[in-house]
Design a binder for these strands. Structure first.
Lengths: 134, 134
DNA sequence: CATAGAGATTCCCGCTACTGGAAGGTCAAG
DNA sequence: CTTGACCTTCCAGTAGCGGGAATCTCTATG
């Protein structure tokens, strides 16, 4: 199967698939003409990668997950460990974004948003921080 | 004032300050010795940038906010527009992360996490989602 | 005066995970 | 034979810096 078909089937851009080969996540065969020849396993692996990436796993996480996936003797604890670590990262990100959102929403609400120059958003950003005011 | 002092006062790494100069966000003077000489306005501007960045505004957003900040005749609506657009981006990310978190938390919970190889996390990632059964 | 060490400078590479584009080879159809 | 869709490689760029080398400059001390 050529890269175009694989792209269609996995939903991954061809560029991305080539990149995954470059960094050793997948190793398709090569035809006489130099074209990449993907086997079912390759396609399957790429699907796996696509789903893992869409859950926010890093490429490095994916590498680990893929290795475990192909290791019949794995311990599910190892997989769970990667997933839990990622979950914690997500939670951290959520907390950070939540805090940003709260501050920003507050400021946006306080801003008249008209033709006048007075703006609480700018005022807040301009704060001299030697007097931290909340 | 030298870059080290500015770094202390703003909390921004010296590297970051040099980078901000490079991309034209701030323009300190230069002394005879080639050292950057920061005026109060520069320091103030960098503090502004630091706070805006910590709220997640992109460098490009910051450029716009800074221009408005320095424009005495600005309309607060323009500032509010940038902030609102950013707020929406944050909401988008929050939704996305929230969905990831839900899926992942569910999988982590379903995984025994012991020595056995059976793992719902891998099973989910490995799902064949082709309509045609293979 | 010499020297040490702190702080400054520029320069270039590296990171994440791709994306875009140029220059060119290959293949099937008309 | 030509067209156009595919495929190939390679180069460059993205955001927002961080690391580290090689090289000044300043200040303090013996």
């Amino acid at each position: 199967m050529n890269i175009g078909d694989v792209s269609q089937r996995t939903g991954l851009p061809a560029k991305t698939i080539r990149y995954y080969e470059e960094i050793g996540l997948v190793r398709p065969l090569r035809g006489e003409n130099g074209y990449r020849q993907f086997r079912e396993r390759d396609v399957h692996k790429l699907g796996f990668l696509g789903r893992a990436r869409s859950l926010g796993f890093s490429i490095d996480d994916c590498r680990g997950l893929l290795a475990l996936y192909e290791d019949e003797g794995r311990a599910s604890a190892d997989v769970r460990h990667i997933a839990k670590a990622h979950l914690e990262k997500i939670d951290g990100k959520l907390a950070e974004l939540g805090a940003m959102r709260a501050t920003l929403a507050h400021l946006v609400e306080a801003c008249a948003g008209d033709h006048r120059p007075d703006c609480p958003i700018l005022a807040d950003l301009a704060l001299e921080d030697d007097k931290a005011e909340t």
